[in-house]
């Protein structure tokens, strides 16, 4: 009986350690990437939409450099930027 308890306890502790390390090492998807058009045209000067989204993490106003961003997509992006600045 005590053997089962010990194994369960140790397995539980080890799994918590694993979850913590997994959470720290996994690459989280960039939150700005889904608002960008995804053409990877490079007109912004950052090479691709991924580069742009990484640049936006440093300075959010970089979104103005995205040329294909028009109409509804631009509106959504601006709403999101306003929310971010508001925070």
């Amino acid at each position: 009986m005590i053997g089962i308890l010990i194994m369960t306890l140790i397995a539980f502790i080890l799994s918590i350690i694993l979850v913590i390390i997994y959470d720290k090492t996994i690459e989280k998807p960039n939150k700005y990437l889904k608002y960008l058009p995804g053409y990877n045209c490079g007109a912004c000067g950052f090479g691709s939409c991924k580069g742009m989204s990484e640049a936006m993490e440093k300075d959010i106003m970089h979104y103005k450099k995205c040329r294909p961003l028009k109409g509804e997509a631009l509106q959504k992006m601006e709403e999101m930027v306003c929310q971010q600045i508001g925070k």
Binding site: M7, I10, I17, L18, I21, T25, E27
Partner: peptide
């Protein structure tokens, strides 16, 4: 159990 856990950790670290 301990070895498996350690291997998982080092796998995640090397992958990163």
């Amino acid at each position: 159990l301990v070895v498996a856990c350690m291997v998982q950790i080092i796998e995640m670290v090397i992958k990163k």
